[in-house]
């Protein structure tokens, strides 16, 4: 859940053409990009940020194979072992007739499994709340959050971002993880309320 609070320098860009070189510069300068929030998938940004490829599709393949196996073994077991019936004179092991269900279960397992995995990995669920660095990150701004450590000089980072083309720059102290909450309420974290 809560990943602890950290300090961030946040720069917002309004054009992905400016964002790309900025990302490269920031990385070159050795700053740690916490994340870049964009209103739509900007192709190639993940590479520019040095993120590794997602392997969610591999998970999907595994789920699919699980679905296929489940369907075939279950139907075979029911019709040949558990309760063999003479239905219309068809063979007990009527593989061709099982293709439709096998296929459907393959797709179903893969799709449901992948979506759940996706939600799990990205921490997505109803009532999940995360810190919003800039409300227009889902509208028209590309928001870069740079993580500050004790040694980082905020002002230096801010001016660096300004040079890189950011339109809005500020410093935020924010929760990095997620918590259960509603977006219509300013909620304090449990920890803060209790004054830890």
């Amino acid at each position: 859940m809560a990943g602890g609070q950290k300090k961030f320098v946040v720069g917002s860009f309004d054009d992905e053409a400016v964002l790309f070189p900025a990302v490269k510069k920031v990385r070159k300068a050795g700053y740690k990009i916490h994340d870049v929030y964009t209103p739509f998938p900007v192709h190639g940004l993940d590479h520019a940020m040095g993120l590794r490829e997602t392997s969610i599709h591999t998970a999907g393949f595994i789920y699919a194979v699980t679905g296929t196996t489940t369907a075939v073994t279950f139907m075979s077991w029911v019709f040949t072992k558990d309760w063999p019936l003479n239905i219309g004179g068809k063979p007990h092991f009527a593989l061709p007739a099982w293709i439709p269900i096998t296929f459907e279960l393959t797709v179903l397992f893969a799709a449901v499994g992948m979506v759940l995995t996706f939600c799990y990995l990205c921490n997505l669920a109803p009532f999940v709340k995360k810190h919003i660095f800039h409300p227009r990150a889902t509208d028209d701004l590309f928001v870069m959050a740079i993580e500050c450590t004790d040694k980082t000089n905020d002002a230096e980072v801010q001016s660096f971002l300004e040079n890189a083309g950011a339109k809005e720059i500020n410093v935020q102290v924010a929760e990095t993880g997620w918590w259960i909450g509603r977006y219509d309420r300013e909620q304090k974290l449990y920890k803060e309320e209790k004054g830890y």
Binding site: V36, Y37, T38, L45, L51, C119, C122, A125, T138
Partner: peptide
């Protein structure tokens, strides 16, 4: 679902 627009999330 708490979508934030993170690049990693977009990639997935």
């Amino acid at each position: 679902f708490g979508w934030s627009g993170s690049t990693k999330h977009w990639q997935r």
